[in-house]
Design a protein around this nucleic acid. Structure first.
Lengths: 116, 116
DNA sequence: CTTGTATTTACGTTGATGCGTAATTAGGCT
DNA sequence: AGCCTAATTACGCATCAACGTAAATACAAG
């Protein structure tokens, strides 16, 4: 399992994305994070483990509490992976818009023209 | 299954990301997309179905061929989802303010935020 | 040392995922 | 019609993901 797959898989769950959203407000313990959810605390703990193994969060222990904190690196990796697509799709859309202004009946006649 | 989960789940597979990378070069049929991979054509067809249901590609049929093409909307949705995280993680002062708003009585709870 | 709290791990179940092979649908061609 | 190619769907199988309950671990305080 490569790193990007771990990151995307971690993000592919609404509960885990909600946990990340909670952590935007600052650090939080496991029970604090579990409170707004209807699922059990062990389930939240497992979700946090997935997020941790994806590098999206880190846990620092003080006594029996684990303070969870957001980490920026994985999301930066996602940005890097997306960059060529954003460049490609933006230029492609621009050219498609231009083509639609000229030939509104054949928007797909433009596809093979693009080589990068 | 919400839309973002479908998108992230579709991206959480190396084969599917490789298929998207191939489509950066333009349209391609199913067999063309399957050629560089060691898996079977039906498996690639199923992967493409996942990508299609996530909105990442569309298929236009001409005769018995399906021309697959990249679609920008889902990746833009991912960008939108990531934006608040990028803003949050970029500046340390924001984190400090957020932490003070949540835990005004425990100023030492965010001392770890100052490293890095 | 015992109790209470926070968290993780174990266990069993359920549903989803990924794969290859085989069968099926669909279109073009002679 | 018959045949060939492209693509999807059906089937069986193995693996993995998510959940709750229950047990286990870790730590602080009485």
């Amino acid at each position: 399992m490569d790193e990007l797959s771990r990151i995307f898989l971690a993000l592919a769950d609404p509960t885990r994305r909600a946990l990340l959203a909670q952590l935007q407000r600052g650090e939080a313990t496991v029970t604090e994070l579990a409170a707004p959810h209807s699922i059990s605390v062990p389930s939240v703990s497992r979700h946090l483990k997935v997020l941790e193994q994806a590098g999206l969060i880190t846990k620092s222990k003080s006594a029996q509490w684990r303070n969870c904190r957001l980490q920026p690196a994985p999301l930066q990796k996602v940005e890097e992976w997306m960059r060529p697509y954003r460049d490609f799709l933006s230029t492609r859309l621009d050219r498609l818009d231009a083509q639609l202004a000229i030939n509104p009946d054949r928007p797909d006649a433009f596809t093979e023209l693009e080589d990068r």
